[in-house]
Simulated assay, not measured.
Amino acid sequence: MQKHLNTRPKTNMLIAILCFVFAGLQSSATETDTTQVIEIGGIKQYISISGEAPGKPVLFYLHGGPGTAVSAHKDVVTGELEKYFTVVHWDQRGSGKTLQMNETTAPPTFDQMKKDAEELLNFICNRFTTDKIIVLGNSWGTLPAFHLAQRYPEKIRALIAVSPVVSNLRSQQITLELLQYYFEKQENSKAIQQLSDVNIPDSGAKEMLIQYRWESEYNGEGMSDEQFDQLLHYFQDWEKMWFPLYSELYKNDLERSAGSIKCPVYFIVGKKDLTTYFKITEAYFHKLKAPEKQLFWMEDVGHNIPGIAADKMQKTIIEYIVPLLNLSETIK
C-alpha cells in the first residue's frame, strides 16, 4: 500500500547536501535526555538518549552520510518523536563526537559498521530491558538498518526506511542518463560538458558533486559556481575518510541481499529523489516480502528528508505508522 503526502518545504541546498553526502515495546528507562560513551567495536562511541515520556517504546535512529551524525541537531530531526518515543541517536564510527574521542587510523569498512550496529542494537535492548525496538534508518543509515532487520528480526518491532539506498550503482547510472538527456534537450552546454566527465562508479568526490549539482538544477534548485567550490572543499576533506566506504556501496543491492524481511517495513520516500532514484526504490518496495509493508510518498521533496522536511517525516511516523504498530496504548 502506498500513501502520498503533500509537502512543499522551503529548501536550503547547502544544508541538504551536507546532511547527506550525495537518517517487547516497553522501556524500563527512568531517565531521559542523557548521553553515554560506551565501548563498541573496540573504540569509544557516543550515544544520546532523549524523550519527554519515560516508559515509551524505544526508537533507534541510524543517521545518513556516511559520516554525518545528527545528534548535535537532533531537536530538529526527532524533536517531535521524542514526545512519543525514547529516541537513541548514535554518532557512528568516524562521525560526530565518536570521531572526536578516537584517533582514526583507517577509513571504516562496511563490515565494521554493520558489526557496530549489531552491538548497539544489543546494548539498547539490554539498556532498556526490552525485547523489541523500532529502527529508523535514513539514507546511508538504511543499509546497516536493513542488515539488523535481516539478522535480528525478533528484536525489531519495525524498520522505518527513509530515502533507502536500494542500489547505489543502478540509481546513479539511471540518474546520470536522465540528467544527460534532459540537459541535452535544454541545450545547456555547461551541464552537458560537466556531466560528460562523470563516470559511474564515481572515481572521487568531484564527480559525485557534479552529478548532485545538476540533480539540484533539475529539481529547481540552482547551485552557483561559488557554492560548488565551497562544497567541493568540504567533499575533498570528506572523501579522505569516507570514499573507500562509499565505493563499497556500489556492490550492495537490496534486491539481491534483502529480498525478504521478517518484520514490518515502512518506507518514507521523496517523489523527487534522484540521489537514490525513487523509481528503483518503488520497484524494490513492490518486490520486498515482509509481514507488513507500506510506502509513504512525500511530494515535492528530494533525497534529504530529515534535512528539508523533518517535520513532515515525524508527522508521518506519528500519524500513520504508529497506529499500524498498535502503539496507541503506550503513546499518549
Rank of each mutant, 00 (worst) to 15 (best):
Y61W: 10
Y61M: 11
Y61C: 08
H63M: 05
H63I: 05
G64R: 13
P66L: 07
G67F: 08
G67L: 07
T68Q: 15
A72V: 01
V77N: 11
G79R: 12
G79H: 10
G79D: 11
G79K: 11
E80L: 09
L81C: 03
L81Y: 03
F85S: 01
V87K: 02
V87F: 01
D91Y: 01
G96S: 03
G96T: 02
K97L: 04
M101Q: 09
N102T: 03
T105C: 10
T109A: 13
D111V: 10
Q112H: 07
M113H: 07
K115S: 15
D116A: 11
L120S: 02
I124H: 07
I124C: 08
T130P: 02
I134P: 00
N138F: 07
N138L: 09
W140A: 06
P144L: 08
H147G: 04
L148R: 02
Q150E: 05
A158W: 00
I160S: 03
A161L: 10
P164V: 12
V165K: 01
S171T: 09
Q173R: 13
L176F: 06
L176A: 02
E177T: 06
L178Y: 10
Y181N: 14
E184W: 10
N188H: 13
S189I: 14
S189M: 15
K190E: 15
A191Q: 12
L195H: 08
